[in-house]
Design a protein around this nucleic acid. Sequence first.
DNA 1: CTGTTAGCGCCTTCAT
DNA 2: ATGAAGGCGCTAACAG
Lengths: 339, 339
Amino acid sequence: MATHQTTIIDIARALGISKSTVSRALTGHPNVNGKTRQRILDMASQVDYQRNQLAISLLTNRTGTVGIIVPEFISYFFPKVIIGAQEELARLGYNVVICHSNESYETEVSNAKALLASRVDGLIVSHTKETRNFDHFKIFQRKGIPVVFFNRVCEEMNVSNVTVDDYNGAFRAVEHLIQTGRRRIAHLAGPDTLTNSRNRLNGYRDALTKYGIPVDPELIISYDLNLDKANIYVNHLLNLPNPPDALFAINDPTALEALSVAKRRGIRVPDDLALIGFSDDPISAVIEPGLTTISQPVTELGQQAAQVLVRQLLTKEDEFQPERIVLPTNLIIRGSTVK
Amino acid sequence: MATHQTTIIDIARALGISKSTVSRALTGHPNVNGKTRQRILDMASQVDYQRNQLAISLLTNRTGTVGIIVPEFISYFFPKVIIGAQEELARLGYNVVICHSNESYETEVSNAKALLASRVDGLIVSHTKETRNFDHFKIFQRKGIPVVFFNRVCEEMNVSNVTVDDYNGAFRAVEHLIQTGRRRIAHLAGPDTLTNSRNRLNGYRDALTKYGIPVDPELIISYDLNLDKANIYVNHLLNLPNPPDALFAINDPTALEALSVAKRRGIRVPDDLALIGFSDDPISAVIEPGLTTISQPVTELGQQAAQVLVRQLLTKEDEFQPERIVLPTNLIIRGSTVK
DNA sequence: CTGTTAGCGCCTTCAT
DNA sequence: ATGAAGGCGCTAACAG
């Protein structure tokens, strides 16, 4: 199917004037005769004229478009971040192109290349759990295209990033478990490729240490976030000779999986096993018992990422200072930890 | 921040050859000396050369990009459709730009204009609940840019669309209620701007009629899908002198809202009130009691929309025949209708 | 106030 | 096998 798009030349010809005048009228340049301008605008709307953004971007070397790469968007988290970022960017006059890496490093690299080819002005990204090599993002930096990481950040690049306080959230989660009488607290952690997994693990460790509870490596399992296999690890923990009386899971879906394993095994929650997640998934509020969790300001995460990026877009390259924004988390206590 | 992108001219100059040769080497044209080609490719990767898609699109009048407009993407539904469409389109060599109209007619119009300006090759769309005027989509048609509607379709345009069998799903939902002994079956419907709302309402009506149950207008409420207000309508129904013994809700979130109202009022589900939703939201499977609902092949919806669009992209304009694809729905029986 | 000209980066004839 | 020239649609000097 071929498309027939009207150009300013078509309009100019139809009106017997030059394309410059048409261009001026259409862009709101003051130096155009009132009547001429009206004739041009009328004709433009009559033929559904729509400026060719490709030509303008080619000329101005600026697309007004920001790319966003996320590893998934089935869970409520990334969609909400995207909406936050998008609303902010729209307000500031930017368009958004969303890419979905599907937790695949290869797809992420190809997303990055495509965004580079389409000449986005900036990039907001949360990388995949497979990503260990960040060369595809470093190209952006080298070309002077601002990159902002969120949620899962890249520590080896000197870029801005926006996160929540994963360390403190985990610390308070574990502290809450200790204060409600738990002593053998297990942690089902995420892969150590992810900064937020590492920070949550550190928060877990430090909370135990603060209260004089030894860190038992047997109670820490790191897994790849493949939810289908979470039950294996939960069962493994529950089968230990000296099983845990509490489990802090890397995220809510994992904790919910643990809850379902416990139910199946007839283990009472919270009596025999306390459960706590991270992220406050909508399901956590409606399930029985409710899941205690750490909530994070999701929409704000997106807004902040957008703002940081735009700030950088408006900064001269040699004045660039990376920003590190950390948003607060909040402990939400529900029935999975206390009666 | 200004970006310095390498061009084929930079490469040509550095190698002391013409840009034509560089272009040929980079696009895989056969008529290039093997050694020259290698030197060019080496240099290109050394300087992180990335072809400027804007220039190519301007030249070829083809962007290889498809726009998708959805009214929201918090619920699991639209993200899953998008993923289905995106995977299919990626497989076929197309990029995707996702726009979020946020159920606002105005935003939708501006999304459409932006996609037109960025010269997308095609459009996949589910319109907002406010949309009554489809002029912004008709422009695409007039310019020969294929449009495919899904989920919420436009009946006044001669375009392809992909939907699920809303009528039959609703019919079977109500039939199930009747067969389990219910007689006063209410319907909390969606706005009549949406084709799927209207089709579900028709399915509801026809099922009642088939079983000789009079359609009582008092039991049909149409609402704007603003979840915050769903409880008002549920309460209104439950306060009727002759209240319903079953409620068929336009979608799962609405049914879950009704469930929570029932719990608050001490109404037993399913004993006093049977509840049934539409869409099989993940929450419906985990809540107590489980929500009976109609499931739909969400990912396939996206895949089909993508396939229909690409088929049309490869068709000559005068041979275009709109396709109407209807995917099957499935009744999922859970505790909200039977013990 | 309006027209002419140049050029953004690339591909594609048309020559050589 | 390579180079030169033209043009996609547009904006921005530069002239008048």
